[in-house]
Nucleic acid binder design. Structure first.
Length: 193
DNA sequence: ATGCAGATCGTCT
DNA sequence: GACGATCTGCATC
């Protein structure tokens, strides 16, 4: 079942935690690709020095200020794209970074897009999964309640644990917040803890 | 297994 | 003009 708009209209921490174990899917003429979300991070707007929306609305972050359930894509280090899900109601600038997937659908197509054959390294990081799913800058603002990219329920069961977020050391006290959520012990995580 | 440098550019100060 | 919510290949242990 595809997640409805209401799923995304809740606070970012709840959305981040509950996205673990759901399946994210993209659909293109060349095929469908997807995987179980096993790692997320919440970015909590004005409360969070690590968040892109911490310093207010800009051309890049304007999507944070709309309603939840839309895609925020950005370029990092000049070469990788990161895929995020906007959370909460309009005016509350929160988002969830998707950091790792357990590949399930269209694995051959994802391997081709990545130029890699190792399943464990196919979607074990935010740049990797964005490439594997075929996400481009054109996905900025895409509606997760549409057909080209969406998230659906699964029967995946996992113990969820919370840790500090990855690579946000610049954010002072916020770097310590336990706002990364992982399927405990899963082999496809970007970092093994 | 662990570590480090290089690639590369949009965004914000 | 500086710097990332990163990934890869190559070096060394």
């Amino acid at each position: 079942m595809k997640l409805p708009r209401e799923f995304y209209l809740r606070d970012g921490l709840t959305v981040a935690r509950e996205l673990v174990g759901k399946k994210i899917v993209t659909r293109f003429p060349e095929g469908m690709t997807g995987g179980i979300i096993v790692e997320t991070e919440a970015y909590m707007g004005a409360l969070d020095a690590a968040a892109h929306s911490y310093r207010g609305k800009t051309e890049r972050t304007k999507i944070f200020y709309g309603a939840g359930g839309f895609v925020y894509v950005y370029l990092i280090y000049g070469m990788h794209l990161c895929t995020n899900v906007v959370a909460n109601v309009a005016g509350v600038p929160e988002a969830v970074l998707i950091r790792a997937l357990e590949p399930t659908d269209g694995v051959e197509l994802m391997k081709r897009r990545r130029g890699k054959n190792n399943l464990r390294e196919l979607c074990s990081g935010p740049g990797k999964l964005s490439q594997a799913l075929g996400v481009t800058k054109n996905f900025y603002g895409a509606d997760l309640c549409g057909e080209e990219i969406f998230i659906e329920t699964t029967d995946f069961q996992a113990t969820i644990s919370a840790t500090r977020r990855i690579n946000v050391d610049y954010a002072g006290a916020a770097a310590e917040y336990p706002w990364r959520f992982v399927a405990a012990g899963n082999v496809f995580l970007s970092v093994k803890h």
